[in-house]
Simulated assay, not measured.
Amino acid sequence: MLDAVRDCVLAVGVRRTTLTDVARRAGVSRMTLYRRWPDVRSLVGDLMTREWVAVATAAMPDREPGRPTRALIVDGLVRGAGDFRAHPLFLKIIDVDPELLLPYVLDRRGASQEALLALLAGALEEGHADGSVRAGHVERQARALLLIVQSFTLSLRTMTDEDDTELTGGAFLAELRGILERTLTP
């Protein structure tokens, strides 16, 4: 069902997606959807959680013997920011329904952010243990890192011109890498 809502949102955006459209595309009844999701927004919320967590986990590099955890965290966050900004669902939401993201930026944490914070907290604890990440309050550090990365993913286009591919890609990701390195270095 999440694949069906993804297809609908990519086709017409969140506001124009209906549970009827999703049910038809998924090959189930509307009542089947209503048993689990009260409305399209909650269904899209679960979709965003699935997609964003998948981007984050796929961005984390494999562990290598002798490689400090800090390097894994920084590489994963930088790659994740780039991958997130290129994700088709994110691009569609930003282009058609950007107001959908406002509550998660201004008012409350969503399930995606909670899952990302848990991933970051686990990595930070490992970094504290191997000495590659400066000591600190794990949850606070995780929240600070997520705030930094969110600003680069959600607001980057406000700081660049549309035709400035150099800035929207490598140059700003290099700046993000420098900020994260300096933030985490003991």
Rank of each mutant, 00 (worst) to 15 (best):
D164Y: 09
R67F: 02
L173N: 13
A115C: 10
A115P: 07
L180R: 03
A54R: 10
L119Q: 14
E51W: 02
R108Q: 13
R108L: 12
S42L: 07
A111Q: 11
P65L: 12
V5S: 06
R79I: 05
A142S: 12
F90G: 02
V138C: 08
T49N: 09
D83I: 03
L156C: 08
D164W: 07
L10K: 00
V78D: 03
S112V: 00
D163Q: 09
V78R: 04
P88N: 02
L89T: 02
Q150M: 13
R177W: 06
V133Q: 06
K92F: 03
D95T: 11
R15T: 11
T153R: 00
E166C: 01
F152A: 14
G127A: 04
R30W: 01
V138Y: 05
S29W: 09
V22A: 02
V44R: 02
T168N: 07
D161A: 14
P88R: 01
L167V: 06
E162P: 08
L147Y: 11
V53S: 13
L43P: 09
R24L: 12
A23I: 01
V40R: 14
A11I: 02
A71M: 05
R109G: 06
D163W: 03
P103V: 00
G45Q: 15
A4N: 01
L184C: 03
D164H: 09
